[in-house]
Amino acid sequence: MMEALIKDIGFIIGTTLMYSTPLIFTSLGGVITERSGVVNIGLEGMMCFGAFAGAAGAYFSQDPWIGFACAAIAGGLLALLHAIACVSFAAEQIVSGIAINFMGTGAALFISRMLFDGATQTLTIPNKMPLPLNFLFGEGKMFASSGFMDLVFNRFATVYIAFLMVFLIWFILYKTKIGMRVRAVGENPEAANTLGISVVKIRYGAVIMSGVFAGLGGAAMSIAVVSRFSNTLISGHGFIALAAMIFGKWKPQGALVACLLFGGAKGVEIFLGAKGVPVPGDILAILPYVLTIVVLVGVVGKTTPPGAIGKIFDKGESA
């Protein structure tokens, strides 16, 4: 009885970790760009494009890591468009983000149809992301198969990378010069500019990185959680990641907590589904969204978005 319960808990935690990972990558991307003062609601499109590029790359190269890299490049390229529009040509950032969403999903399906015989999904990739514990110690060597520890810790490499990235981004944002500059540009670009920081360069870098991370998030879905891209795979995860970023108050560690919470809702949903408990999955699926609204309503007074968020910075005008 007790043993089964512990195993169930392990299952839920493990599933939560798996489903949180794509969100963690993508919402980290959101944190980076918004901290530099550029809103990016195009995360969904970038994630979708990255998910496709990841699966396609992994399929043709038979190597998930090459797929992972393809996803980063694909997301970054799409983000470059957003950066050009928002940073160089003073585009309304939300509108540009909407355009990116059209383009990202459009491009993913377009290329998919070209490469995969008219299908809006890729073929199954031959090799998924490895499980590092199995890789290092051999299957079932580190922890007993399907035991609590195995369920929790024997996860795809992407899961470990995501947690590492949270720490890394936190460190860069708060402990390094470049991070301080990103935050300065997001809070007060005019002042940063006066101090000789290139607002344009920082924002380009931040927006492109957000695309890279969103792309990785997409790939974490298409080459780890499942093993192919399909047209409904991403449907909304980019928006959940965006919510997680806001939920987490524009902080990497906050976003992590929010993503785990949202992933947890999915974990519970899957667990109950597997147990045959008659809880409507659709109602559980609503939870993250409603929770976000409730939290925003409750704590918005305490959340502080970056000072210059969404503001167009024009060097000519301020100089």
Binding site: A99, F102, M103, T105, G106, L109, R113
Partner: peptide, 11 residues
């Protein structure tokens, strides 16, 4: 692919 329309609209 018909999705060229999405790319056009996005553009």
């Amino acid at each position: 692919p018909t999705e060229v329309i999405n790319i056009m609209v996005g553009t």
